[in-house]
Design a protein around this nucleic acid. Structure first.
Lengths: 217, 217
DNA sequence: CGTATCTTTGAGTCATGTCAAAAACGGTGG
DNA sequence: CCACCGTTTTTGACATGACTCAAAGATACG
């Protein structure tokens, strides 16, 4: 999907890249910041999020090794519409926008891959939009957990291989902290998931999938 | 934004285009259909929407003269994740996907424009996502009305220049029909908008903008 | 140990969706 | 011009999911 940067892209930009170490909790940029460039994630996990007022946020997606952050800078606006913050210590590679842009003009297949990536992200985004509008919290949590499993995989113990706080999980499902909490409990009671401290395991993926797919039940 | 198809694109595809007349209410395609190609809208209005269960839908965006529909077919999935339906009689130009794809490979600047378009749409989508998660219905309605104004403009009488049903307006807002209805009434009482039959005029754009931007009040 | 942060629980409130029915509207055909 | 029917609008009453607030346990941490 976006791992292309590793094979395709990085060799060409060797001369122009700047590697940055990012601490957990540190921001790459915030919504409203001027667009300076685009980021490739070498290691760690970055959350891409958007705030509402002072206290609320929605996590739009996560970027991990091989993913891109800041691609929205490609739009017409010279300002990031979203924020990017590390939730695990990360190393990212920064490419100034002007260089990135000029490369797009000569590398057709790379541009084409970006296009596919954006189309995929738009699909995902619109799906989640529909879910936020119509799906109850329980289904959204199920969906969120499955997404995390798909993106990060599971440990040998069967737990989601991400170190994500409940706060962030709530922000990712688009629900209040306490709501998420109660739903997690229900899911545990129904044996769809298991918890060990802050870690979550998927016990019954089929049932979760069903929850995340269909109706109001 | 997307009017580029008129200047940029249409000459080149003259040989491969197929014009289709679409009646009001008729679908271009439905979610789940195999991706066959991409559509350019010559005239009329197409709603791009996504269903939830049997009865509910969310309208993702509208496409009018010069806009593209079906660009999500560029993603990895060979199946449309969304539906496209005319809400006003329309004429669209159909381009088979294989031809479209092959053209992308030789026309860099066009691909680049598509990229920008998708980035813009992703921004918009993520903004709406955030709003669905955190903004109350009233603010979302305000936002929806402003969007319609931006996209379709207003008549000399000051009314939104789209012929959109309340049903669709509700689906665009992501709210129940009756909820939309009550909010519209409030907005009329507060003199932010006016209504004449099914048509809506913007009376106080500043106040609407304020509503659509900020907090829970 | 004392302070801070995060988790857990309970209770209350409110916005929004649901359901049902009346009213208004718009056409159609006699 | 009017009676009829289907659709859309309008209203009211109601149910409830989800958010908020607040406080009590836990857990971490210096």
């Amino acid at each position: 999907m976006c791992r292309f940067c590793l094979n395709h892209w990085l060799p060409a930009i060797a001369a122009n890249r700047k590697n940055l170490a990012v601490k957990k909790g540190q921001a790459l940029f915030n919504e409203g910041d001027e667009v300076k460039g685009i980021y490739f994630v070498y290691s760690g996990v970055i959350k891409v999020h958007k705030r509402w007022g002072r206290e609320k946020e929605l996590i739009l997606r996560f970027a991990r090794t091989g993913d891109v952050v800041g691609q929205l800078g490609l739009g017409d606006d010279a300002v990031y519409p979203i924020s990017a913050t590390a939730i695990e210590a990360a190393v990212v590679c920064f490419i100034p926008m002007d260089f990135f842009e000029s490369t797009l003009n000569v590398n057709v297949s790379f541009t084409r891959q970006l296009l596919t990536m954006l189309a995929n992200q738009l699909q995902e985004s619109e799906k989640r939009m529909r879910n936020l509008a119509h799906m109850p919290v329980k289904g959204r949590v199920a969906q969120a957990l499955l997404n995390l499993k798909n993106q990060f995989g599971i440990t040998t113990g069967g737990y989601l291989a991400v170190d994500i706080s409940r706060q962030d999980l709530a922000a990712f499902t688009g629900a209040a902290y306490e709501s998420l909490f109660r739903v997690i409990n229900e899911l545990v009671e129904d044996k769809l998931i298991g918890i060990l401290g802050k870690y979550i395991s998927i016990q019954n993926e089929d049932a979760l999938t069903k929850l995340s797919e269909q109706a109001d039940g």
